[in-house]
Amino acid sequence: MYARRSALLAAALVTVVLVTGCTDPAPLGRSPEIDVSSAVAASAAAKKELLAALAQFQKGTYRYAVDADYLDGQRIQASGAHDPAAHRYTRRFTITGGPQAGSGELILIGDDLYTRTGDRSRWVHENLGVLATDNPLLTVEAEDPSGLVAFADAVDWTDRTGRNTLDGAFDPPAAGVAILPLGAPSMSLFSRGNAGYTATTDAQGHIVSIVMDLNTVDGRRKLTSTFSDHGKPVTITKPKKADL
């Protein structure tokens, strides 16, 4: 998706060179130079729209689901909810089809992180304010548990490709750092600047899905995150004391 845009811009620039190198007058209508400028302006407007839509995730509640390729031919599914105003976030995930198969769950309330894995009934409590978890299966940041703030900061360019679709590229974090979807287990990437995405919005301008194309050490991977119930109440409570 992001390679296509580069090719189109290159073609536009070649057209500019060919036309400006001619002695004949340019045809009536917009010049190629104006067309290129318009494309750049349209891309900037599309990026501004995307960032505004992503910012809504920090203001209102929502639910999410993730379905993605994972390392070693495995798959990961995750789901949960986020209430940014109350600083509450939850996630359940399952990895299938390989050596890392398993499941886990986390609840984040402020700086208090509660996690458990597999069939364990007991939760482990950590205070992220003084001790951040280093478990790659449960990586989460108190200020950005969904990872959507980091994604917004990493967006490189955006183009509108349909009435409700935006395509573009972003710079993924360095190898070994947790990336989307939504704080799910980290993947090692070949290099920065080699990741594309397609975001889809609804009639109200809410993002309802983000599909990512990543180049990892294990090959290309597709990560799909969907979002629903924007602005609707979510209930996220800490585990019972008896389960700690």
Results as ranks from 00 to 15, higher is better:
51 L>V: 08
68 A>G: 09
69 D>L: 06
60 G>M: 12
60 G>V: 15
81 A>G: 04
81 A>N: 04
71 L>V: 15
63 R>H: 05
74 Q>W: 05
72 D>R: 15
62 Y>L: 13
74 Q>I: 08
55 A>Q: 10
75 R>A: 14
69 D>C: 09
59 K>C: 01
67 D>F: 02
50 L>T: 04
68 A>L: 10
44 A>Y: 01
44 A>I: 06
67 D>W: 00
60 G>P: 00
59 K>A: 14
75 R>Y: 05
57 F>E: 08
47 K>D: 11
69 D>A: 13
75 R>V: 12
64 Y>D: 01
48 K>Q: 12
65 A>S: 11
57 F>W: 02
69 D>T: 05
52 A>R: 10
70 Y>Q: 11
51 L>A: 04
41 A>T: 06
48 K>R: 09
58 Q>V: 00
48 K>Y: 00
73 G>T: 03
55 A>T: 05
42 A>R: 09
63 R>F: 03
81 A>D: 03
42 A>C: 03
54 L>M: 07
52 A>D: 13
65 A>V: 04
66 V>T: 13
70 Y>I: 10
45 A>M: 06
68 A>N: 07
70 Y>K: 08
59 K>H: 06
49 E>W: 01
58 Q>T: 10
48 K>C: 00
74 Q>G: 07
70 Y>S: 15
77 Q>R: 15
59 K>W: 01
40 V>L: 12
40 V>M: 08
43 S>K: 03
49 E>R: 12
57 F>P: 03
60 G>E: 15
58 Q>E: 15
51 L>W: 00
49 E>D: 13
73 G>Y: 05
56 Q>A: 11
75 R>C: 05
80 G>V: 11
51 L>I: 06
61 T>E: 10
51 L>S: 11
64 Y>P: 01
81 A>S: 07
55 A>R: 08
66 V>C: 12
46 A>I: 10
42 A>D: 14
79 S>V: 06
64 Y>R: 02
43 S>C: 03
45 A>P: 02
61 T>V: 06
49 E>H: 07
49 E>Q: 14
40 V>N: 04
71 L>F: 12
41 A>Q: 11
